[in-house]
């Protein structure tokens, strides 16, 4: 069983996202460990990028904060190396593809393997362009995680039948960010996915409250929260540990 599957074996998985290096290297290590300790079953690690096209303002700001601390991809690996000394929480990267291309695919995925990072989510690598990294990632045992959106429609089965790790179901149109309401009929999408594959699904985009997490848990194997976590770090800066732990615990409890 891959480490990703472990995240889903015990009830609905609570998946947290954090931008590596936000607000700085030391605190970032601490916050990832805090999240793991207080209930994240899997953590998505964002590699800071100047042009995060699919992100709303909250995560854009996190990218800027990390870049202002001069965090580069090697620093991100350093952060995860420290995390790995204390935690075996399943980790996946969420990154735009350009930083990975610039780092070198071979070198990047080989490092992922060294640090037991199990997957990569690249929002700008749709099914049609997966070839870009598919083979190299596979050779290093890294899952390329597919996204399915409310607008995917007849593409759902094509994407799902080729998916590995888990499937990231995007709850809403537009970009990441906190939303009061999720209007998409997620059940329909997940049913269609279930017609072709048994790999876990996790829903993300717009989820911030325990109520939302509870509702999503009913239809999905996992709940992904990004902006709400990143916002806590944005609000509390270097003193975010306690509120972060409290929030993650609350959300994980809602998923149970």
């Amino acid at each position: 069983m891959s480490n990703i599957a472990n995240a889903f074996k015990d009830g609905t998985a609570f998946i947290g996202f954090v931008t590596a290096g936000d607000p700085n290297k030391e605190k970032s290590i601490q916050y990832i460990l805090d999240m793991a300790e207080s209930g994240c079953d899997l953590i998505e690690i964002g590699i800071p990028f100047t042009d995060p096209l699919a992100e709303g303002p909250v995560i854009q700001q996190a990218n800027l904060r990390a870049l202002e601390s001069n965090i580069n991809t090697d620093d991100v690996f350093d952060i995860l190396e420290e995390v790995r000394k204390k935690s075996d929480v399943p980790l996946v990267f969420l990154t735009y593809i350009n930083p990975v291309l610039a780092y070198g695919y071979e070198k990047f995925f080989s490092k992922c393997n060294d640090l037991e990072i199990d997957g990569i989510i690249a929002p700008d690598l749709p099914f049609e362009e997966k070839d870009e990294i598919d083979e190299i990632a596979k050779n290093h045992g890294i899952d390329v995680i597919s996204l399915i959106a409310p607008s995917s429609k007849e593409r759902i089965q094509m994407i799902a039948s080729d998916a590995t790790g888990f499937i990231y179901v995007v709850s809403s149109l537009g970009v990441t960010g906190i939303r009061n309401e999720i209007e998409t009929d997620l059940e329909v999408i997940i049913d269609e996915i279930r017609n072709v594959t048994d790999i876990p699904t996790a829903v993300g985009f717009g989820i911030s409250t325990p109520e939302q997490a509870r509702d999503i848990s009913k239809v999905s194997d996992g709940v992904i929260v990004g902006s709400a976590i990143v916002k806590i770090i944005g609000d509390y800066g270097e003193n975010a540990s306690e509120p972060l732990k409290k929030y993650v615990k609350e959300m994980k409890d809602a998923c149970r």
């Binding site: 593809i97 690598l125 749709p126 049609e128 399915i148 959106a149 607008s151 995917s152 593409r155 149109l173």
Partner: peptide, 23 residues
């Protein structure tokens, strides 16, 4: 053939978020 769409040598392609692919 489908994957070759929009390629100019090794450049081009369709590196867009899934949300926009059908569009």
């Amino acid at each position: 053939e489908k994957l070759s769409r929009g390629r100019y040598g090794k450049y081009g392609g369709q590196y867009a978020p899934e949300t926009l692919m059908n569009e």
